[in-house]
């Protein structure tokens, strides 16, 4: 009788331990599944953020090029002086920037899609600073393109809306 009672107690303890182990395993397994799911969702969000940060970085780089003294309007940010672009000997800038392409394009009001030369300026809309004729991954952002204009005997600053396009 006593031996039976001892066996029963041992058996009960073993069952309790087994029960606890199974419960712990189930809970841990459940949390691992949850964790994996959360991780995949966070990774997806990270990818989106990384891609957006890349775009922001590219836009900042474009702005820093537009703000170079060779191109920028005096005392103005985000402004390209097209008179300077025409006056500069742009061929010396071919290898100055580590870029395959650098264009300034007027989108409004002039949309002639004509390449600017000394003969047709300012009735044109595309300024090519660098074009190495290679395939490029283009990035662009919006800028003002300003010049001096004379009308009725007055000089004033006339700004167009355009883009800076960079190919790397």
């Amino acid at each position: 009788m006593k031996k039976l009672y001892v066996n029963y107690t041992e058996r009960k303890a073993q069952l309790k331990i087994q029960e606890m182990i199974f419960m712990l395993l189930a809970v841990v397994f459940f949390f691992i599944l949850i964790g994996l799911f959360m991780l995949s969702v966070k990774l997806k969000q990270l990818n989106k953020q990384a891609s957006q940060l890349d775009e922001e970085k590219a836009a900042s780089m474009l702005l820093s090029i537009a703000n170079l003294p060779e191109f920028s309007c005096p005392d103005k940010a985000l402004c390209v002086d097209t008179d300077k672009l025409m006056a500069l000997n742009l061929s010396i800038y071919e290898n100055f920037f580590e870029l395959k392409k650098l264009y300034f394009v007027i989108l409004y009001p002039n949309t002639s899609n004509v390449l600017c030369t000394m003969a047709n300026y300012p009735n044109c809309s595309i300024f090519i600073v660098v074009d190495k004729g290679q395939e490029t991954n283009d990035k662009a952002t919006f800028v003002k393109l300003c010049r001096q204009e004379k009308e009725s005997g007055y000089y004033y600053e006339k700004c167009a809306f355009g883009k800076i396009i960079v190919g790397v």
Binding site: S60, A77, L78, C79, F142, V143, F161, G162
Partner: peptide, 18 residues
């Protein structure tokens, strides 16, 4: 809606248009 440099540049360039 997140702040964007591209959208900001669009507005800055547009507001400066003559």
């Amino acid at each position: 809606i997140q702040e964007s440099i591209e959208a900001g540049n669009f507005l800055d360039a547009a507001l400066g248009l003559t």
